[in-house]
Design a protein around this nucleic acid. Structure first.
Lengths: 192, 192, 192, 192
DNA sequence: GATGAATGAGCGTTCATTCAT
DNA sequence: AATGAATGAACGCTCATTCAT
């Protein structure tokens, strides 16, 4: 039956919510179980340990983000639209998953060498996703010749994340009120 | 006597090192005491609790960053040099304090409303510091007219932080090998 | 049908193996179920609880030992052969059931007053079995007149068990290499 | 100060009592702490883990037994008195430490290879202590020529332990009422 | 003021037992 | 009758905090 797989997914969802709200150490297994509507012991039928659960939750979330981002990029017709889609989707994802990605850093000591490597690979693959987008933009002459793709990615990801962090966290703006067009403008045109 | 104040400062320094290495929960008071070269009980002569110590350490570190950044900006002769100085200093600070700022987010549940407000204020003051720098650049015609200062700050801070995160964390590049000029270029000129 | 009774017996056999290998607390019901080739819940169709299962397993094993011992004694033609048979059989039983009898002591807190009484009775009946053997030997003048049967049993059981414990456990000798003749000699002739 | 060492010893004493009453798994750290008149956490200031505490308690108890036994043997003027002393002391020790030695077997899975080796060595050294006593008896012509010392030890230890087990455990006789003289007789003279 | 031994609340994890299928 | 997924009581262990010295 697929009930098994579904319950596992439910626990992962609950774990994401609780871990994100309280951090790794602050999150209690009992809270996660309660959030998933099950008993504490049941969590251990699906995951070996709190650390294991955290790792899987992270894999899950990062993978979801990466895949959706790839899709958003593919859907954009030109570089401007692609970056716009990234901005919109990232903002939505961040506001739902909060500091998931920040936690990824913080939690590095919890991970096996293998998992850490996987996570880095996953992050790099997000970088590469965007690098390819930039290279494509250069090839299509939508972006200037000689633009260093890696630097471009820093500008794109960094500006988007800062924008989100300031507006949603500090100013407590509603995510749907964000002006993604302006963000893309400053990325594309620079400050000068 | 200032011996009291000095010891307090020493504990804060030690706390910063240990918190940053192990995170809030992973850091043990005993470790911090050992790192400060004092007994465990002594920490409690200077701070009410672990949380209190964490808050004070954070205040301390953020304040140090803000002040140094202000100085670096003042020292730059034009906007390019100012941003360059920010990039260089931020990178140095981050590599020494690691995810201090990330921890700030994560730790928000540990803080009193008051402290959280203070921290937000402090972050905003960093934003404003850079906004003023941008406004000044626009006034001097070093940056284009009509540039939205807030957006400019997202680009500056975001690009610098991404650059640092990718190069130092993922690629494990030495902080002194970073090419800050290129970062400033992409910030100023955009991708087009 | 006797299928019910047979499965019960199978579980008891499996339980003996697992309890003996891991001890009462170390043995998991799931292990026992697996060893018996059945599902965990099925154990509870045949036994009320882990403690109950342990009790029954103990009864079973002790009863088996007592009966076999009685048979071995009956088969011996004179006192020497009887004791020899006891030594050989006890050694074989112990090496298969390990510290079953030791566990009996240790586990006394797990038992109801009733079961404890039964177990003591069972042990006493083993003592009596041997006492009768000794009395018979005295009557037949195979053993000296005036020999206190109870003391004789201490000598017989004690020497055999020590022999087994030292040779098999400490020296790791193979059970079939034991020199039971020599043991019987020292029991019969004493040290003087 | 020696207060540290004393408290350690107190905990070991309390641990011996509790372990012996409830077995390794049945004994709760909290019980041991309570028995020692201290808080739960304090146990961990002196011992790394429950297993460590158990090991140390065992070392302690076995060592105490071995040393006292050696002394008792030395004090006996002839072989009869030496064995008598062993019988009396062993009985006293066993009635105070109950099945400590049985627990040693049972607990073998809890021990590191090193500790297990040490325990076996310790047991062997008890065997050797008695073997030397026997050899000395043979040399002094108190025991018959050609007596196999190892077998003699089985007889001595085995008979004494059985005697104790039957009389004190099963018959619930008071330890001071035991007839050690009779035990020595049967050991020395055998059954014939 | 400085210390570190003592404490116990709190949490991760295990596993006997239950019960819906 | 047989199963194994679900449960939660129970316990080992950690560590922030206290307080006697």
């Amino acid at each position: 039956m697929s009930g098994k797989e579904e319950k596992r997914a439910e626990i992962l969802k609950a774990a994401a919510r609780v871990f994100v709200e309280y951090g790794f150490d602050g999150a209690k297994i009992e809270d996660i179980a309660k959030a998933a509507g099950i008993g504490k012991g049941t969590v251990y039928e699906y995951f070996e340990s709190k650390t294991d659960l955290f790792r899987e939750m992270l894999r899950n979330s990062v993978e979801e983000y990466r895949q959706a981002l790839a899709e958003k990029i593919a859907q954009g017709r030109d570089i401007r639209e692609k970056i716009l889609n990234c901005s919109q989707y990232s903002t939505r994802f961040l506001s739902e998953n909060l500091d998931m990605l920040e936690m990824a850093w913080q939690a590095s000591t919890l991970m096996s060498k293998e998992t850490r490597t996987w996570l880095i690979e996953e992050k790099l693959s997000i970088f590469r996703l965007l690098e390819d987008m930039v290279k494509d933009g250069v090839a299509r002459a939508e972006l200037r010749q000689g633009l260093e793709p890696e630097l471009a990615v820093f500008s794109i990801l960094g500006t988007i994340h800062q924008y989100y962090g300031k507006k949603v966290f500090l100013d407590e703006a509603a995510p749907e009120k964000l002006d993604h067009e302006a963000v893309v403008d400053v990325i594309l045109n620079g400050l000068k």
